[in-house]
């Protein structure tokens, strides 16, 4: 299935444990391998990640589980220490 890359922008990103991560701001394309390397995600969930001086994070494309109306990525227990401490 071919999709326009602009359709990704603004999509909500959740982990597979239904925790909101943020929204897609941009896609980072690798010109040599002709693949999407990362999704740039901003407006992050402050309970998960707090950045100082940065707007967002890069999510590797390989941890994406599926893309539909929203994007679901894999959940790593050490990825969001603040949440796992609860």
């Amino acid at each position: 299935m071919k999709t326009q890359v602009t359709e990704l922008f603004g999509m909500e990103v959740y982990t597979e444990k239904a925790i909101r991560v943020g929204i897609v701001d941009d896609a980072i394309l690798n010109v040599d391998s002709k693949k999407i390397d990362f999704l740039a995600v901003s407006e992050l969930n402050p309970e998960l990640i707090q950045l100082k001086g940065f707007k967002g994070i890069k999510i590797p494309y390989r941890i994406i589980r599926s893309i539909g109306d929203i994007i679901i990525i894999r959940h790593f227990s050490n990825m969001f220490p603040a949440k796992d401490a609860d």
């Binding site: 299935m1 071919k2 999709t3 326009q4 890359v5 602009t6 990704l8 896609a27 394309l29 002709k34 693949k35 999407i36 494309y61 390989r62 994406i64 893309i67």
Partner: peptide, 16 residues
């Protein structure tokens, strides 16, 4: 104008 991608494989398909 746009870029067509395959979301399953992450492959960039074509330029519009």
């Amino acid at each position: 104008r746009n870029i067509m991608v395959d979301l399953d494989s992450g492959q960039v398909d074509s330029l519009v």
